[in-house]
Design a protein around this nucleic acid. Structure first.
Length: 124
DNA sequence: TGGGTGACCATAG
DNA sequence: ACTATGGCCACCC
């Protein structure tokens, strides 16, 4: 498993890039067919109160050269709150459905069953 | 320079 | 069971 270090106080400006990079690394580790939440990632990185920044990182992920499976990150209730950023259609939903998930009204059915928590899945 | 705005979330009433 | 609020901080006028 990737060696990700925990940063409880990493926020000086020049380290921001690192924070986003760490977010991207975690997102890349989400297995096919699984999903996690913004807050879970933030907590894993020691920034539990900065879950909004994870959303911002996902925003940036679209203009990166490497592949970031941003569709596997949803809010804590399994709601596809980021779907608007995937283009005009239901692209985010389709990507998830391609991985075997079922979505109804922007909500992942059996969310708990497919929830992948970096805090428990990634060894510290 | 400053204020508004989030792909959020836990907590308090 | 709801709604409100505060924290957080990069980005964009």
């Amino acid at each position: 498993m990737r060696n990700l270090t925990l940063h409880s106080n990493f926020m000086p400006k020049e380290e921001n890039e690192t924070f986003f990079d760490l977010v991207f690394e975690v997102v890349k580790l989400i297995p096919h067919g699984k999903v996690t939440s913004y807050g879970a990632i933030a907590k894993y990185l020691g920034a539990a109160k900065s879950s909004r920044m994870v959303g911002w990182a996902m925003n940036l992920s679209h203009s990166r050269p490497d592949y970031i499976p941003a569709h596997r990150v949803v809010n804590r209730n399994g709601l596809l709150t980021g779907k608007a950023h995937f283009g005009p259609t239901d692209q985010m939903q389709r990507l998830l459905e391609n991985e075997g998930l079922i979505i109804q009204d922007n909500q992942i059915l059996d969310f708990n069953k497919f929830f992948w928590d970096p805090n428990t899945e990634l060894s510290l």
